[in-house]
């Protein structure tokens, strides 16, 4: 999983500073409520205005206004109420916030929401059918691949990404595929069993269909 914080050679912070002032520049020219404009002028250095964004999350389009600096995790949790995505480090280090972006596992705390535009975002809420569990989720229950449960949605999404790419992983594949997701309770032995069991079950079901 990429931990790269750079985008086109520009750090996230610099990128935000640039976008922030640019947006303010163009927005204060538009006529608006006098008070707001005054506040904007006074605080133009500190304010970053919202921009429109269309995100496709779990198959549905969402039209949003977000500050350019907003991360994908923040949009998912705070704007869309998808609190299944957990934020543990908010720094692209632990994998608690793992979601799928075009079927690849990414750290949603480390991706700007704007960068997810035009891509398919899948969260833990999106892999279920109604209240019915995804086979990976069931495997995590059956094999007790969790303790406190805080990192679990991220673990499940990392497993989903791994199995989409590699439906028949070896134990070593599982170790590598899940290595971006920290579990401080260290339920790792059972996480390995859960992912292998989910893969095996999916494999045997595919064989039955054939």
């Amino acid at each position: 999983m990429s931990k790269d914080s750079k985008k086109g050679g520009i750090s996230r912070r610099k990128f935000l500073q640039g976008v922030g002032s640019g947006i303010i520049g163009s927005y204060v020219l538009t006529p608006g409520i006098a008070k707001a404009a005054e506040a904007l002028k006074k605080n133009s250095e500190k304010l970053i205005l919202s921009v429109p964004l269309t995100l496709k999350v779990n198959g549905k389009q969402a039209h949003l206004l977000v500050e350019p600096r907003t991360t994908l995790a923040e949009v998912l949790r705070e704007k869309l109420g998808l609190t299944g995505t957990k934020v543990a480090c908010n720094n692209g280090e632990c994998g608690g916030c793992t979601v799928l972006l075009d079927k690849k596992a990414v750290y949603s705390c480390h991706i700007l929401a704007l960068d997810a535009e035009g891509k398919e975002v899948t969260t833990i809420e999106g892999i279920m059918k109604g209240e019915n569990l995804h086979p990976i989720q069931q495997a995590f229950i059956d094999h007790d691949g969790l303790q406190c449960g805080f990192c679990t949605p991220g673990q499940v999404m990392a497993a989903e990404a791994l199995l989409l790419k590699n439906p028949k992983p070896t134990r070593q594949d599982v170790l590598e595929g899940m290595s971006g997701n920290v579990c401080r309770c260290a339920a790792y032995p059972n996480i390995i069993e859960s992912v292998l069991a989910a893969a095996e079950k999916a494999g045997s079901e595919t064989a039955e269909l054939k």
């Binding site: 299944g84 957990k86 833990i124 995590f140 229950i141 007790d144 969790l146 449960g149 679990t152 949605p153």
Partner: peptide, 15 residues
């Protein structure tokens, strides 16, 4: 199996 497994694997557990 954990009684609270469903809430935890679905992300519905309210921390």
């Amino acid at each position: 199996s954990r009684l609270d497994g469903y809430e935890k694997v679905t992300g519905k557990a309210a921390f």
